[in-house]
Nucleic acid binder design. Sequence first.
DNA 1: GACGCTTACGTTCGTCGTAACTATT
DNA 2: AATAGTTACGACGAACGTAAGCGTC
Lengths: 310, 310
Amino acid sequence: MNLQQLRYICAVERQGLSISLAAASLHTSQPGVSKQIHLLEEELGVRIFERSGKRLIGVTAPGRIILAQAKEVLRDVQNIKQVGTEFTNEITGSLSIATTHTQARYTLPKAIKKFTQRYPQVNLHIHQGNPTQIAAMVEQGEADIGIATEALARHQGLVVLPCYQWNRCVVAPPGHPVLKEKPLTLKALARYPIVTYDFAFAGRSLINQAFEAKGLKPNIVLTALDSDVIKTYVELGLGVGLLARMAFEPARDKNLRMVDAAHLFAASTTYIAVRRGMFLRGYWYAFIELFAPHLTRAAVDKALQTPSPL
Amino acid sequence: MNLQQLRYICAVERQGLSISLAAASLHTSQPGVSKQIHLLEEELGVRIFERSGKRLIGVTAPGRIILAQAKEVLRDVQNIKQVGTEFTNEITGSLSIATTHTQARYTLPKAIKKFTQRYPQVNLHIHQGNPTQIAAMVEQGEADIGIATEALARHQGLVVLPCYQWNRCVVAPPGHPVLKEKPLTLKALARYPIVTYDFAFAGRSLINQAFEAKGLKPNIVLTALDSDVIKTYVELGLGVGLLARMAFEPARDKNLRMVDAAHLFAASTTYIAVRRGMFLRGYWYAFIELFAPHLTRAAVDKALQTPSPL
DNA sequence: GACGCTTACGTTCGTCGTAACTATT
DNA sequence: AATAGTTACGACGAACGTAAGCGTC
């Protein structure tokens, strides 16, 4: 067995069970890949891929396990290479962040700006997704760091660090009657059509819980995947918006008025997550600290439970 | 980078930073090992080992991380090979269990007997140690399964499953006054010299807590690493023994009398642990179920959170 | 001077690419 | 007939072992 063979089987799976595509993606010849896979299967004594004659049509039961382990191996190998570059070249590399719209749009920019100034040679990638996708991306090694409010903590393979707490607010066009409800109550809110986040997002379950606890049924007329869509429809007069406090910017949102709703719903916590056992480049720590100043390198290392031997 | 290079650096570390010994242990030539290590260091751009001239005298900071990751890789590769043998040859292989004296001596034998009858071709190893050592062995991959009452749950890298609960008992030579204390109380017990487990073991902390809660200071005259030593010294009249209920066997321990102490101390739970992300051979599941019948394959898989795709 | 690591060199084996072949759709 | 995978073969390169060299202790 060698690393190349593991790369080959992973590529074949990734390319939809095509040896030709896998070979192309790895810039090598198709017969080479074919042969190495056969050699590996022979050595292990099991077929990894199901075949119909000569075509690959699926993954066998042992193949699924082997592929999962092979990915682990390749990730760790990647980690070892990272260690090399970290110690020879601290300031170059890449950082791939998976996050939600709200974070990407309203809370990350400040940290990103400082980061790119300080590490201009780091290649930064930001992937947008819902919390479940984000957790999966970090767990699979497709993203280095995940930032989201939900779902992260449920994953065993992730180390999750709390960043900050936030509350919700209600927005409406100027003159809307909800703005005169003082103090604003859930009961009052339930009388208006509501525009808020999709269920997969940002503590949406907390919103439902708060209404349910009072025996109220909110009239949710539109659920969106991001704060900007919510604001757009509120401006159109579709209803009152219920969104993250940090997503309201008085300077920009001149067509809207905001009422704090911190007293109506439980606060949500935004977390940052990295894969357990991952080697963290120095600038990863730097980014985390820029985003959440209390998460110093020491604090992160402690949470990783495997104190960095640096 | 290739797997051989990773095997080499791990062997060098394991053999106490000796390239010659590492080469010997891997049945290869010493110059080959030397060269591959240099090639790896060159490729990564960092020194893994500290050198004084030509001798290895230590591990560098990046080297420590690289070695840790390399061990991960080799474990996963081992796992892949296991998958092969599991599917071609379900009944042969090896199983390495790390456990404490009390488990090895009193609770495991029944399961082991059934297991060896059912899987005569499985090579069984039992390593004895204290709970901390057991957790470390499983986490490092030196043992496949760990069984102990403490310490396991604190390790992130382990999946821990509860097996059974047990209580303590007091033993003393026939005619000893403690046997007439009815009902037996902590206060009464505190009047006698006590022989019990070392602090690293078997809920020893629970014993201290129970006494402390009543403001009592037990007179512990001897702490032992195993139940047999405790019984031996109790037979010699050194004091009363406080040990696990299952460690008292009326048929064997004819020179001792036992009083149940379940009402005096909180019950302890014995756990079984495997490394997270490990591929479990079929007979591992069988062993676990023989030891703790409620831990069926389905129950174990569920706890592993990564449902076996078998 | 003995031990331990490195360099040098030649052989062997494994890997990869091209080309021809075969099977599936 | 076209597409996808396998077999065959030859060239290159990597890895290993032996032998000699060099630096430490």
